[in-house]
Every structure is written in structure tokens, then in C-alpha cells.
Amino acid sequence: TMLPLLLLLLATAHALDKLPYIPTLARSPLGGLTTASTFVLEQPRCVFTEVPSDAVIWLVVAVPEAVANFNNSVGPGTPERAFQGFPGSTPAYMTLNTTILNYPCPKPSGEITVLRVGSETSCARNEMRPTCNGPLSGPGPYRVKFLALNGSEPVAETGWSKPITLKTAQPPSSIPVMGSRHSPGMIALTSILSILFAILLASLVAML
């Protein structure tokens, strides 16, 4: 009779805490929240308040198709979660690992509380750095969540963000070149000024 109770307690002890937090883009008025290869998130402050102090909080970046069947048990640094294979052979990767100590609650006044995803260029092709926070290769869309691991055990997770779409770089041919074209009004004004200058020059010569 004790076995079912023990199994229930064991399952409860290892239950994943699903937090009611949804990652969002930062609310900075400075702009640049999304570029062609990066985006900026708000840090999850005052979110992982019940996890062990030594738990590691990871950011998961995924293509939308990978969200429904995402497996929390596949750990960071494995081939299935390596940035270098994303998004082709790896539909999701894990990066920006830290502990709750770096997400203090409440937020100290004046402290920057954002995360720029995609800011590391040096490790983008380095397969020895599978958790690289490398630049994203396309506009997406992407979805993200935060996942806390105690050792290799998932202990808490946030919800998934809404789809995040990056900016698309303009091809050089679409960028207008200053001075390459003149409006009819500008041409007419230039002609009139040339005529007036010629008349003025002729008058000066006649006075000599």
C-alpha cells in the first residue's frame, strides 16, 4: 500500500513547474530591438523565484514547428540542441545560460535588464561551442522560452513567446543613391540659374 504513495511523492518531487510568464521583446525606447540577425528580450526577473539557487536557467530558441513536440529532457550542448545546426538539422537550440543570481528580484534601479539574442559572432561556426549565442541566419519567425535545469533535471519553464520576426536586409539595388536622379523642377531651376549667370557675365563684360 505504500508503493503507490511513494510513486506519487516521487512524481511530485520531479514535476516540472510551468510558470505563467511569457518572454517578450524588450520595451526599450532606444530602438534596435530586432535587427537582421538579433533580437532583444526582457530578462525574466522575479520569475524563477522557487527554483534552487544553483539551478541553471537557459534560453531556448526554436522554429515554430518545433514548439509542440519540444523535449525538455534533451540537454544543452547535445547535437540535437547545437546552435551550429540551427535551423536546418536542429530545430531548437539552448543558449545564454545563467543562474538566478543574475536575475535579481526586484530589479535594481538603473540596471540594464535585457538579453540580446544573436550577439556572438566568434563562435557561430565553432562546433566546440554548441551553446553559442550566435547570429540568426534568417528573419524567422522564432519562438523562445526559458527553461531551468537542476543538474540535468528540468525543474521549471516559462511559456513560449509569440513568434518573433527579424528585419529583412535591403538589397543594395533597392537603396536610392543620392544625386543619381534629378526632378524636372531641379533641371528647370538649374537652367534658369545658368541663363541668369550668362546674362550677368555679359553685362559685366560690356561695362569693361
Rank of each mutant, 00 (worst) to 15 (best):
M2F: 13
P4C: 01
P4F: 08
L6Q: 08
L6D: 13
L7V: 09
L10V: 10
A11W: 06
A11M: 05
A11D: 05
T12A: 07
L16D: 06
K18N: 07
K18Y: 08
Y21I: 01
P23F: 04
T24V: 15
T24Q: 11
A26R: 02
A26F: 05
S28V: 09
S28L: 11
L30A: 11
G31I: 10
G31A: 06
G32V: 03
L33W: 03
L33A: 09
T34I: 04
T38V: 05
E42N: 08
Q43C: 09
Q43T: 10
P44V: 00
C46N: 08
F48A: 04
T49E: 10
E50Q: 14
P52T: 08
V56R: 09
I57F: 02
W58P: 01
V60H: 01
V60T: 10
V61S: 00
A62S: 08
V63H: 01
A66D: 01
V67I: 12
V67F: 00
F70W: 11
N71P: 10
S73A: 14
G75V: 05
G75H: 05
G77P: 02
G77E: 07
P79C: 03
P79F: 12
P79H: 13
R81F: 03
R81P: 02
Q84C: 13
G85Q: 01
G85T: 05
G88H: 10
T90I: 12
Y93S: 00
Y93H: 01
T95P: 05
L96E: 06
T98K: 11
I100A: 07
I100R: 12
Y103R: 10
P104N: 04
C105G: 02
K107R: 06
G110A: 10
E111W: 09
I112A: 11
V114C: 06
L115P: 12
L115G: 09
L115S: 14
R116V: 15
V117M: 08
V117K: 05
S119M: 13
T121C: 09
T121V: 12
S122M: 07
R125E: 15
N126Y: 04
E127S: 10
E127V: 07
R129T: 15
R129G: 13
N133G: 01
N133I: 01
G134T: 05
G134H: 04
P135G: 01
S137I: 05
S137D: 03
S137G: 08
P139W: 05
G140F: 04
G140I: 04
P141L: 09
P141G: 02
Y142S: 00
R143F: 02
V144Y: 00
L149Q: 04
L149E: 03
N150I: 14
N150V: 11
N150S: 14
G151W: 11
P154E: 02
E157G: 03
E157A: 10
T158I: 00
T158V: 00
G159R: 04
W160H: 09
K162N: 11
P163M: 00
P163T: 00
I164P: 00
I164S: 00
T165K: 11
L166Q: 04
K167P: 07
T168Q: 15
A169L: 15
P171H: 13
S173V: 13
S173Y: 13
S173T: 11
S174I: 04
P176F: 12
V177R: 14
M178P: 11
G179T: 09
S180H: 12
R181E: 13
H182G: 06
P184S: 08
P184W: 02
P184K: 00
G185V: 12
I187D: 10
T190Q: 05
T190N: 03
L193M: 10
L196I: 12
L196V: 15
A198D: 07
